[in-house]
């Protein structure tokens, strides 16, 4: 069943056509790899789906509902969470506070109760804290939970970005270059976690430049170049697709180093 349907999605920044008529379907429970040369429109795609940018045309349908014109926070409330390519964190807050912030949607008890710190509000805080600690443990950050997020090494900051997104309890998780800048060990751990996240019932769309990771982790791959889809299929099909190889060869050399 299609969880996310993208129809004819376009986006221009002035004269630059970042996305031109992209059609894409994400099925429930799959891990979809989204690849393409730099500037192909991958991050633009994420920004459109999460409402950060407004598209110039096309439709985004999530769980059968048209979310094309919804605001970012409303899209998050409907179950789409993302991690960012640039590391966006609440830098001065601790790791735990960062992840608890991800629980924001789920931890509402109403403003009056929250302001009066009623029992319900305190219980909700305890629950959010417990959830956050579980997610921190899952992402392997337990030892760092009281550290300010801004002081973490790069690899851990990326894990924290994913942890914050997970705390939103999304149906669809969008990961923007989750292993970029990680060493091979960290990267392998992240791949294992992506599989586990899917087993928990989440659907994942992954943008990543590290080809071995994308090929290894994805069920299906969509290749975009210059704002359009040029190929779609299982990893092994994509590896040998002449159009894909050309798109990459024309710009960056070979698929292996892309």
């Amino acid at each position: 069943m299609a969880l996310l349907e993208i129809e004819n999605l376009s986006m221009n920044f002035g004269k630059l056509q970042a996305l031109s008529g992209l059609d894409l379907t994400v099925s429930e429970g799959e891990i979809l790899g989204l690849i393409g040369p730099n500037g192909a429109g991958k991050t633009t795609f994420f920004n459109l789906v999460t409402g950060t940018y407004r598209g110039s045309g096309g439709r985004i349908v999530f769980k059968g509902e048209d979310i094309t014109h919804l605001a970012t926070h409303k899209i998050a409330q409907r179950g789409i969470a993302r991690s960012f390519q640039q590391t966006f964190l609440f830098a001065h807050a601790t790791v735990l506070a960062n992840v608890m912030m991800g629980c924001h949607i789920a931890s509402a008890v109403g403003p009056v109760k929250e302001l009066l710190h009623t029992k319900a509000a305190r219980e909700m805080d305890t629950r959010a804290r417990k959830t956050a600690l579980e997610i921190i443990d899952f992402m392997g950050l337990t030892d760092l939970k009281d550290e300010p997020a801004g002081t973490l090494p790069h690899g851990h900051q990326r894990s924290l970005g994913v942890a914050i997104a997970l705390a939103c309890r999304p149906t669809l998780l969008l990961l923007d270059e989750p292993v970029t800048g990680m060493n091979p060990t960290e990267s392998a751990e992240m791949v294992a976690r992506i599989h586990q996240i899917r087993e928990k019932g989440m659907t994942i769309v992954l943008v990543e430049h590290a080809m071995d990771v994308v090929m290894g982790v994805s069920d299906r791959i969509v290749v975009i170049s210059l704002g359009s889809k040029i190929a779609e299929g299982r990893p092994e099909e994509i590896k040998t697709d002449p159009q894909v190889i050309e798109a990459y060869l024309g710009r960056r050399g070979t698929l292996d180093v892309a």
Binding site: T50, T52, A71, T72, H73, K74, A76, Q77, A81, R82, F84, F88, L89, F90, A91, H92, A93, A97, M100, M101, G102, H104, I105, S107, A108, V109, P111, E114, L115, L116, H117, A121, M124, D125, I164, A165, A167, C168
Partner: peptide, 28 residues
């Protein structure tokens, strides 16, 4: 009372990074 509530935490999140706050569902 505001600063120490969920509302205050959302405020801090907005100051720190409005974009991330929006992406975790805070109506900035």
């Amino acid at each position: 009372a505001f600063y120490h509530s969920r509302i205050g935490r959302a405020w801090d999140a907005i100051t720190s990074s409005p974009r991330l706050a929006g992406s975790v569902g805070v109506d900035v």
